[in-house]
Design a protein around this nucleic acid. Structure first.
Lengths: 154, 154
DNA sequence: CTTAGTGCAAACCGTTTGCAAATGC
DNA sequence: GCATTTGCAAACGGTTTGCACTAAG
């Protein structure tokens, strides 16, 4: 997996640049994080890291996620229930989310037009955009189907 | 202010419909809420209500805001710092926000095209959208100007 | 040997809940 | 009278912080 090595380097570079230390815990957390696909909460990541190395604390996971955000490897997104999810971001192009409020499923979408319109709007208000969060809440296909099945069953 | 009376009626109707009781506290909170323009946090609203009627608790403000959401008078939105803001929503058309991460300013925007594109995307994924949250974070015109002034001052 | 990182427990902050007393209907 | 609402205090859940200890450079 050449990508993983590259991302690991990005992290080590970041540590060096900011004169931080490379530790076993940070390496373990990065390693596990890069092995997850999709979205993880901090607790999930903690549990996964724990499974491999029980000597890692909650705190360190949080602190490391912050570092990963800083060096652009992790992207933070707010789920529908208020807790924070993370996904890796490095060379994983920008996208927004459809969020199923029944099962919590996250569907990624990307629209060139919407991105363009956002730029346009920001310009109108002389607003300098840094980033955005665009979430559409509703029911995913699966949950709609189940809903329908439940309705006809009674 | 004919609008306010109308909204008050909506609330009282909602109470009747759901067999809830009309109380002095609920009336006070509604009254103060309708008098605010723009966005209030629950604590701000609590403070404002407190100023008029010191015998109202935190809890009641939260619980009443929930009722106001239910009957469509209040809309909830997440600020950039994780706390919840409320705005009144009744006959106040839908919009999204540009959020200044420096001063917290909220600028409302609305784009027919973006709304349309969202529908389109949902359709593509057979997703049934209920509502959405679209926030663009960045620096407002004022903060950019101040930033520039600070930079040239040194 | 100096500086930063760690794990733990405690603090935090906005929000929610359990409860006995108070109030609307 | 009966159910609902209230305010308080305590609980909650996710995140952050203070601190004595440990480890990296």
């Amino acid at each position: 997996m050449p990508k993983k090595r590259e991302e690991t380097e990005v992290f080590h570079e970041h540590l060096k640049r900011t004169r931080l230390k490379r530790t076993a815990q940070r390496d373990a957390i990065l390693d596990v994080f890069l092995d997850t696909e999709g979205h993880v909460s901090s607790e999930e990541l903690y549990a996964l890291v724990r499974a491999k190395d029980p000597a890692v604390g909650f705190t360190t996971v949080y602190r490391t996620l912050k570092l990963l955000k800083e060096c652009g490897l992790a992207r933070e997104l707010e789920s529908y229930d208020g807790r924070t999810l993370y996904e890796h971001h490095y060379k994983h192009s920008h996208h927004d989310h459809l969020i199923c409020t029944q099962c919590g499923a996250l569907i990624e979408f990307y629209s060139e037009e919407i991105e363009r319109m956002q730029e346009e709007i920001a310009r109108q208000y002389r607003f300098k955009p840094f980033h955005h969060s665009h979430r559409i809440f509703g029911a995913c296909a699966k949950c709609q189907k189940e809903e329908k099945a439940r309705a006809s069953a009674q």
